[in-house]
């Protein structure tokens, strides 16, 4: 039977909750901090699922050695998180350079797709099929 460390489980939960909370923010900088915390949380979770702590996995070792597999995975994850963080940071910087802020605003183009019919009613020509049909009947319409 494996044992669980309550303190660590609570820490992981707290890190994840804070990370998610920051991830849901509209400031890209706070999203970045959220990603950072989520990285820590995921690494701790990996380590935690490896079982009870032990001595550093150096062979030949004495006593109970810690599981090296989650450690190697977490090490990879740490370095990748570093890469992701710098990329997000560059995005924050660029957003500020272009817009003077780093707020993640709503994507209006995304929302406009849903209202395609409303705009169609308001102003013809309409969807691609219909429009192509009209030009085709007029003669000489090229294929889309």
């Amino acid at each position: 039977m494996t044992t669980l460390d309550l303190a660590m489980a609570v820490t992981v939960g707290g890190l994840f909750a804070t990370g998610f909370f920051l991830l849901l923010d509209r400031a890209l900088m706070r999203v970045l901090l959220g990603v950072l915390l989520l990285g820590h949380a995921a690494n701790l979770l990996l380590l935690l699922s490896g079982g009870a702590p032990g001595r550093a996995p150096l062979v030949p070792g004495h006593g109970r050695l810690a599981d090296p597999l989650p450690q190697a995975m977490a090490l990879t994850a740490i370095v990748i998180t570093f890469g992701v963080t710098t990329l997000l940071l560059a995005l924050v910087h660029r957003a500020w350079q272009l817009d003077g802020h780093d707020e993640v605003r709503d994507d209006l183009e995304d929302r406009r797709i849903g209202t395609v019919h409303d705009r169609e009613d308001a102003a013809p020509p309409a969807g691609p099929g219909e429009a192509a049909g009209r030009t085709g009947q007029g003669g000489g319409g090229r294929a889309p």
């Binding site: 669980l4 489980a9 939960g13 909750a17 991830l23 935690l48």
Partner: peptide, 17 residues
Amino acid sequence: VAVLAGACVACLAVSAT
């Protein structure tokens, strides 16, 4: 949402162990 998801992951950690 964040607290719920965090608690969920913590439970996951417990059961994964």
